[in-house]
Design a protein around this nucleic acid. Structure first.
Lengths: 338, 338
DNA sequence: CTGAAAGCGCTTACAG
DNA sequence: CTGAAAGCGCTTACAG
């Protein structure tokens, strides 16, 4: 099929030396092995001449390292995750690693299937945006000494490195911003999820509302509802029913999207709005929506640091590094006093 | 490091048979090899008992097939590509294959680096959204008998399978829709790229304009300008200068995004707008933008068909299947007669 | 019906 | 300074 590649053996045969010598030289261990500069030079030149490329598969089989990482997120087509993916991808290739992105749809069954599938494929580590019931599966991975970093959410009781943002503070700050801008009846639209990131966003909202002497008003939408359209109906009803909401805070980007779709024309003149997670489209005037922006670039930098620390050192002390990054409230027209 | 896995040898030793027999049974070749049902049964049961998992790396090294595909797109964080990625990903895992997504930023150097990198890693095939000068590199891949499918754009003179949409027809239809809705001075905002997809969109626009007895009005923005902000300035000037544009057609989704950002408040009451590529955000009322929608799901289905045809059969006759799919104009408020 | 053996392309103790 | 050899975990002719 493919045109035959040259192997280390070809070089050894041609140069009448052993494959071990070739291997040492190619791996930069010539000095260490006291191989003469002349021989090294000769091998390197010949390797370049015949365009030798090591077979990574064979290396992996021998060394047990595949230089493959899995990055399992909720949904790669989601704006937030796809931005993270793009940045992470650029960073990882410079390290000579590959990353396989996959989406678990926040579903435990799907998550487990994917993890099992990748375990067969000898990946070196996992970055995981865990679905709700994934704690045991991750615990197993850790027991097998697999490097794992959780992203966006974590499990209180599980000793595992993670990177999240300060969801509580972000929601608190955003809600207070609405309060400051004279909104009196601020609704919070979230999911039924009990995952840490959602709990924290809710508690931030509630704290701000109570501190301000206002009434909380929360709508919880089942996760599935976002895809089957029922979320839109629930949101519509929520907006109509108490009748006196003057602002809404969407707790996730997909809720914001569903929510914005159900609004009537002219909503922007009436309703204060903040969305969790920014989106390029929010910048467009005539819509211009205030949003909580996560530090996507910083998330990737930290992700790289932690996963490579785990990969390189496998230091047990580093297996439980929990990082909390700060978000930023990007204030636009939608949250201005009406 | 990782807890030791069981191998085929463990099974053979335990059951006092040879590893070949175990291998045949595990690979479903028991019948073919006339191995007794009893032995088969015993091996299968024991394998399950000790939770045997084949080492895909070893299999790949031996068979030369890695079950890895590379999907190189322009930018995975772009809405269109991330939607394709999500659907493709779901399809590919059911086939037991992995897919590695990467982004070339429409840059030849980056494209070549990525392709070289993945060739070292023994991938079985490539799906490529090619950057402008990638023809030779792809030709080489084909010569090496590598399965390749191009997406979104192609090279006229290169015999290589591809999936594109009918860009000419799509742009023609969209422009005629604006004409029908009484717009008289329709601007076309495109890139300086000479790639097939952009050429075809432009020719579709021009044909519609000329057939309708109108004046074409085209702005060409350099690709880099989209990221350094200069695109916005160019678009702003374009909209202001002739002064009498009453509609604009954005030839790509990132141009639409840049363009929409520069508009003043109230643009939607004055200007007819159509964007190439749909976006969830376009559905939001008060913005509601007409868009050319590509058949994302169908693209993935066809991509799977063609790449697996190549992978399974490697039939030379199938190396030049060129598919052209139809787009759909999603009519919303932005293109209504003002 | 089943086993011994070669080999995929590497790395790395071990020996000299 | 350099080479012969084992082995990573498989698959697959070949032999009996």
């Amino acid at each position: 099929m493919k045109s035959k590649r040259v192997s280390i053996k070809n070089i050894a045969d041609e140069l009448k030396i052993s494959i071990s010598t070739v291997s040492f030289i190619l791996n930069g261990k010539a000095q260490e092995m006291h191989i003469s500069k002349e021989l090294s030079q000769k091998v390197l030149e010949y390797a370049k001449l015949i365009d030798y490329k090591p077979n990574h598969l064979a290396q992996s089989l021998r060394t047990g390292k595949s230089r493959n990482l899995v990055f399992m997120m909720e949904d790669i087509s989601n704006n937030f995750f796809s931005k993270v993916a793009r940045i992470f991808e650029d960073m990882i290739f410079t390290k000579g690693y590959k990353v396989i992105f996959c989406s678990n749809a926040n579903d435990d069954k799907k998550s487990k299937e994917l993890i099992n599938f990748f375990k067969l494929n000898q990946v070196d580590g996992f970055i995981i945006v865990p679905s709700p019931g994934l704690q045991n599966t991750i615990e197993e991975l850790l027991k097998e000494n697999m490097p794992v970093v959780l992203l966006d959410r974590f499990f209180e009781e599980l000793k595992c490195s993670s990177i999240v943002v300060d969801n509580h503070r972000a929601a608190l700050e955003a809600t207070l911003h609405l309060v400051k801008n004279q909104f009196k009846n601020i609704g919070f639209i979230t999911t039924t999820s009990e995952q840490t990131q959602m709990i924290d966003r809710l508690s931030g909202y509630e704290k701000a509302i109570i501190e301000s002497g206002l009434q909380p008003n929360v709508l919880r939408v089942p996760y599935d509802g976002i895809f089957d359209g029922s979320a839109k109906k629930l949101i519509k009803k929520f907006l109509e029913h108490p009748g006196n909401l003057d602002a809404v805070f969407f707790a996730t980007n997909y809720l914001a999207q569903s929510g914005l779709e159900v609004f009537d024309n002219g909503w922007r003149n009436k309703l204060g709005i903040i969305a969790y997670d920014d989106n390029e489209m929010f910048k467009i005037s005539d819509i211009s929506i205030t949003a909580v922006s996560q530090p996507v670039y910083e998330i990737c930098v930290k992700l790289m640091e932690i996963i490579f620390d785990l990969l390189d050192n496998n230091n047990p002390d580093h297996k439980d590094q929990r990082l909390v990054l700060k978000t930023k409230l990007i204030i636009r027209e939608s949250s201005m006093t009406k």
